[in-house]
Design a binder for these strands. Structure first.
Lengths: 172, 172
DNA sequence: AGCCGTTGATTGAGCGTTCAGCCACCGTTC
DNA sequence: GAACGGTGGCTGAACGCTCAATCAACGGCT
């Protein structure tokens, strides 16, 4: 990396050794954890984590249904991605679409009973994995540190306009 | 989620409110950050982050070349994934394959001059993004907390037999 | 020599995501 | 009421990844 510092057109603020160690540890930990949780959910419940989150989000709603846009926002997903995902979930019988009366462009995604059952099946194993590989590895103090850190990063990203649903925001 | 605790066949140890807040914040922060970095690298340098890491790993090697297996381990990638990736990188002219004399099954992946140039182009923007959206959002204390947390999680995953592909000792 | 399990690496199908483009509908304006 | 830009949602192609299958070469064995 040092050799590149000289070659670069405009010297950026490179990371210090400590920062780089933290960054690389963070990168590996988040990636491995995500992969592990993904694999667990796929293996035990036959759904990717993103789909699990869709089901969770729907289940936390009074009528177990949401407009596609609203669902996309809450799951921080693009509309396209959600559209494909709901199509898959519909094939699995876990979600069904419903027309919207007030806005005929709109569509609802609705959690079916099978979908709720699948969620009930999937949740314990997933939560157990999260606890085992994240929460239980940390002291209570570290858990709250992690929350503070995550919220700081989130705030920074949102302040920078890195909002998922807003393609117009980035310009130059 | 509480309703599901009763329905599930075996569901001990749900997350407390604090733990769940921490988990969800972590989830969103890591995901948004990863997506942002991915997008930045793709937009500014035309490569996904995984490919960037391959180039970095090759560049940090004396001869700028590594056996495929070795490269797969260092980038924590599956062999298959790496094989596909190197194929793409070869198309881009950033990497070239070379036969291995000692083991005729083997193959080297070698960083080309164009590949190194692409890396030199890409690195400043990427590092800047990491700094801006992660490091600069945190106090120095939080950075070291994050490192400790990440290492704890990593150690837990490795203890649990999750294939890390990389023993703790090796670094760059 | 011949066999046989292992290892290095590639391949192709399938899946999820992104991106760009599209259509249908909305609300406003003239 | 016709035209307009904006919005809700869908589609298809391209891409990266995973998984299982495959192949060739190695190395130890008798």
């Amino acid at each position: 990396m040092d050799t590149m510092a000289e070659t670069a057109t405009r010297a950026p603020r490179w990371l210090s050794d400590d920062e780089q160690r933290a960054w690389r540890a963070y990168l590996q930990a988040t990636r491995l954890l995500a992969e592990h949780l993904e694999a667990q959910l796929q293996r035990d419940s036959g759904m990717p984590h993103a789909y699990y989150e869709i089901l969770v989000t729907l289940s936390e709603t009074p009528e177990r249904r949401l407009r596609m846009s609203e669902l996309a926002e809450r799951t921080r997903s693009s509309r396209s991605r959600l559209s494909h995902a709901v199509a898959r979930l519909e094939e699995a019988g876990w979600v069904q679409r419903a027309n919207c009366a007030e806005d005929r462009r709109g569509a609802f995604a609705e959690l079916t009973d099978d979908g709720f059952a699948a969620l009930v099946e999937a949740a314990p194993g997933h939560v157990e994995a999260v606890r085992t590989h994240l929460i239980d590895q940390l002291t209570p103090e570290q858990v709250s540190q992690l929350q503070a850190i995550s919220e700081a990063v989130l705030a920074g990203l949102e302040r920078a306009g890195v909002d998922t649903g807003c393609p117009m925001g980035s310009n130059s």
